[in-house]
Amino acid sequence: MDINATLIGEMLSFAILIWFSVQFIWPHINKAIEERQLKIAEGLDAAERARAELRDADSKVAAEIKVARQQAAEIIDRAQQQANQILDKARGDAIAEINRLKASAQDDIASMAQRAREELREKVGALAVQGATKIVQREIDPAAHKALLDQLATEI
């Protein structure tokens, strides 16, 4: 059998059939395929994004923990410094107070010694006058001899 009109007619119809399929049937299948590809791609993207977000969150948490640790260390440092300062200040105050008390005590001691010395001097003066009176057997005019007595008192 050679190529005859029958086969050519059938081939023409077949060509139209193929054209129809390409034009009207294949696009539907292609659309379904592309939608499927898109859906899968989106799903994979979403999963990848979620993973990346998780990684980000993890590193952010780690960074924040690091910052918090640093801050805590700084706060502790500062607290220690403050404590030291307070201690120093208290020590200084205490020393100053001690010095002050010591000074006032010394003053007191000094003034009491002075007073004692003066009382002693007056008593010695009086005793000297009494002694001299007994020796001379007569009244010595304290006024006339005051200068003499004072001189005696200062010499003691």
Partner: peptide, 28 residues
């Protein structure tokens, strides 16, 4: 329908192509 192709007239030949195509589409 293919019998139309050898029926000996161009009108029938055209009808043959149309018929063959339509039946092919339906056959899908």
């Amino acid at each position: 329908i293919a019998g139309l192709f050898s029926a000996g007239s161009w009108a029938l030949y055209g009808m043959g192509i149309i018929g063959y195509t339509v039946w092919g589409l339906f056959h899908i």
